[in-house]
Design a protein around this nucleic acid. Structure first.
Lengths: 259, 259
DNA sequence: TTTTGTTGTATTATTATTTAATACTTCTTA
DNA sequence: TAAGAAGTATTAAATAATAATACAACAAAA
């Protein structure tokens, strides 16, 4: 406790910045508003440190502070950073107009996602139907193994990498129907590989079917996915395969990431 | 140059964090990818400093680095921060489902925005039609005086504050039709005050009409707006007033920010 | 109301961490 | 092929961050 576990023997590493970022990323779906002591515990700092970093983030406008409760929450500057990301991502730029068209054609929720470690992160969402708030959020993470996008991403990995992922990546049970049997998921991925698109039924929301087609970068990796989420009450699986999947593939293929 | 202009005689202020944030916010619509030297110039640091901060941001995963060009760009972590903001903002949570419904009813682009200094920032976008990329972006800023949202926000300010805003807030000419005459904008704001909603025609995109209705917080300030953007080629101004504005007001009024 | 505990704020001596100068390497382009 | 620009690595110096502690404000309980 007295000694830091291991020094970052890197003179180019600014520890203070990393700690500040840790404070920022302490906020999430379940931690929307945090007090000083609470925050200190979460990020593993003493109160003094948390105090200095929250103070700095507040002064610079990244954290709002409720004068009553003296608790902190993210400010709109968090969103400005998101816009900066969007401008920098060619996949987002290319996919956006095509997804809007697709959404109009299908009348269903259409999304784009990108791989991020063991998760996928949604980068575009075109909500047309009411669903959970999480399902409308840009920047939302979902575990890869339980999502249509994740499954088609795995399907295009190298053999070793895929095995590794199938064996070690996390699978939390999100709905009662979330598949946690890894060999079952392996079969789903295999099927995705053959079909050319991924499917996930009841994995994150019950009565929801997700379909995802891959977009490749110039070296043949899956750079992202074009995805559609529909209600299984409205869409029998048959029709999803016949009507939605081909459209998604078409759109995905039309997105060429030159660089 | 040798001496910093004024020291931050605040022992609770962590300068290193602030500098790191400056690097992050150097990225925007026009600066999507930056090299070390370039970045150093933009944020006003020497190369050494920029080197240490970019290195830290890279190691912590906030900046991607192209191994070829050695240039930096924002990573998906920027988007995760956005999701954290969304969860923390009750206005977003309440408005989201209502805007989706509204979007389906109108079949037009519906948005929500929040005031941010002399700008407004879009926090929700439901794109249904193709437009400029910027008009689909969450986190995008628009100068208040040229937007329907900004105008209805001004309309509900105190007298002194409004005058100040009308006299000093920036007005860049975005389109050839952007109104830069401040007394003209004052009239638009006056009209917004009487109607209960703001209008902006051709201000940010030509052939675009924006309409915005206010959502109030518990102390009567405009916490945000519910907004709709339509093509003036499709919607005569008359119909915007008669058909869209009332629907927006209705939705805005149904959003009650308890806290 | 008083007491007790919890959370947030302010101050300061100590020193670890950041800093900026400089030299080195790699890449670009003329 | 050479010159210039951009990125990388190293280091000595001291600034700026640290963490301990005391103080204040608030909330809950007696």
């Amino acid at each position: 406790m007295a000694k830091p576990i291991q020094k970052k023997q890197d003179t180019l590493f600014v520890g203070s910045l990393e700690k500040g970022l840790r404070i920022m990323s302490a906020f999430n779906a379940h931690r929307t508003e945090l007090g000083l002591t609470e925050l200190a515990e979460i990020v593993g700092m003493d109160k003094s440190a948390a105090q200095r970093f929250t103070n700095t983030l507040h002064k610079t406008g990244y954290l709002e502070k409720d004068p009553e409760s003296r608790r902190f929450r993210p400010s709109l500057k968090f969103l400005e950073l998101a816009a900066a990301y969007m401008w920098s991502d060619p996949f987002v730029q290319l996919a956006m107009p095509k997804l809007i068209d697709l959404s109009r054609d299908l009348g269903e929720r259409v999304n784009a996602a990108r791989p991020a470690g063991t998760d996928i992160i949604y980068v575009i969402r075109i909500p047309t139907q009411l669903t959970s708030f999480a399902a409308m959020l840009i920047g939302n993470k979902v575990q890869a193994l339980s999502s249509s996008s994740g499954r088609i991403i795995l399907a295009h990995m190298g053999e070793a990498e895929r095995r590794e992922a199938l064996e070690t990546w996390p699978i939390d049970k999100i709905t009662p129907r979330t598949v946690t049997d890894r060999s079952q998921i392996a079969r789903e991925v295999e099927e995705a590989a053959q079909q050319g698109y991924g499917i996930a039924v009841n994995q994150n929301i019950i009565n929801e079917i997700g379909v995802a087609a891959p977009v490749f970068d110039r070296i043949g990796n899956v750079a992202g996915t074009v995805q559609c989420s529909v209600s299984s009450l409205k869409w029998p699986l048959e029709r999803v395969h016949n009507e939605i999947a081909p459209r998604l593939m078409e759109v995905a293929n039309s997105i060429n990431l030159l660089r």
